[in-house]
Design a protein around this nucleic acid. Structure first.
Lengths: 209, 209
DNA sequence: TCATACTGATCGAACGTTCGTTCCCTATTT
DNA sequence: AAATAGGGAACGAACGTTCGATCAGTATGA
């Protein structure tokens, strides 16, 4: 049960004490938001979970909303960065789509609490903060769409891209409601099976409007 | 923009005034919960939307939680009843799976606000109320699983049923985040395309654990 | 027929609680 | 000594809910 944020942000030494402590707070907050939901989680819950006083928390961020923003931004940015890294080594279009699926599943199975927060607290953030997170999500969607379009072009397939891709996103984003590692196996196995259904599905379909 | 609940419960004459008024309140509440989310929607919002005073609302139900329960129970029960009706006329296993998908999409495109409330306010209800809704959801899942298993048996297919079915549920439950009737077409067209991908997907896959 | 009694439906006003946030003060570190 | 980090106590606002009162109907009894 090692901490993702802590290992990302606090385990390495050159970081400041402030950043390390903030990372710990964000990690605890992620767990609380996951368990109770953003709206139902109170600042007093976060205080208890992080071992800081209520007032002490506000030394690290300016509002509960901003805290959620920091969490969402961190995980979205990280999973996208990891995807870019992985895609560097893959050139086959089908394999690139599989890499997307596998990266998504591996990352979010490894950070399952954060994954639930990102999925469930999808439209809580408003205004500038919300816009910024929305832009990240759109970028992530488009990176997937680009991979599918490339495959479609290479194989000369005909299908409605938007519906197919949204269907795929549905499959991999719905995981948080049912996934149980002991029943459903690890992330690579899951990614292969979901990838199989999706790829066979689009290979064989024909276009209609 | 005719009202589902009102046409279900209040348009016909033999119903009592109480039931008609409750149905209207439930319908307004569904719209408010859809727009603001259950936690963020206040009893004062519901009062404003339904044109009743805050206190007047409590003549019709005993708590905000119970109100959400009434909404969820109504829509789950109705979609399941409609599915049973439709399946009576269909015997071919593949066509029965397609009927499930089409029924689900048609019903929830027609009751889109309710659909968003059911999908998003998934785990809000607790204790007895939550158990009852959970049982309905499980029944709905099993009715789909039965159809897929029958098809699998008939065609001698090999794939992990749980993962395939959950993938399908993901595809059709994620709709609420992206579906736009003017871009994505009507429910039958959508159902056919999603059904195509899913069915071709499971026809061609082979089993592995 | 007309006063009386009762019911269903609705209201304004308030209740106690909990929320996110802030003020001001004290430790701790540098 | 100055800057950084944290805490105790309280704030106003908003929440879900409840209370007692009201008012339009309707049935009853003389």
């Amino acid at each position: 049960m090692t901490s993702a944020l802590a290992s990302d942000l606090s385990a390495r030494s050159p970081e400041t004490r402030f950043e390390r402590q903030l990372a710990k707070i964000l990690e605890h907050a992620t767990a609380v938001f996951c368990e109770k939901g953003y709206e139902n989680a109170t600042m007093r819950d976060l205080s208890r979970a992080s071992g800081l006083s209520l007032a002490g928390l506000y030394y690290y961020f300016e509002s509960k909303e901003k805290l959620l923003y920091l969490i969402q931004k961190h995980y979205f940015t990280t999973v996208m960065g990891q995807l870019s890294e992985r895609l560097k080594d893959v050139s086959d279009p089908e394999e690139r789509v599989r890499t997307f699926i596998q990266n998504h599943l591996e990352y979010f199975v490894a950070h399952f609490k954060a994954y639930k927060v990102l999925s469930h607290e999808d439209d809580v953030l408003q205004d500038e903060l919300g816009d910024e997170i929305f832009a990240l999500k759109r970028e992530y969607y488009h990176s997937c769409a680009g991979l599918v379009e490339a495959l479609k072009r290479e194989k000369g397939l005909k299908f409605n891209s938007r519906i197919a891709i949204m269907g795929l996103f549905g499959s991999i984003n719905w995981l948080h409601t049912w996934y149980n590692p002991q029943v459903d196996g690890d992330a690579p196995s899951l990614a292969r099976q979901i990838g199989d259904v999706f790829l066979r599905g689009i290979y064989a379909t024909s276009a209609r409007t």
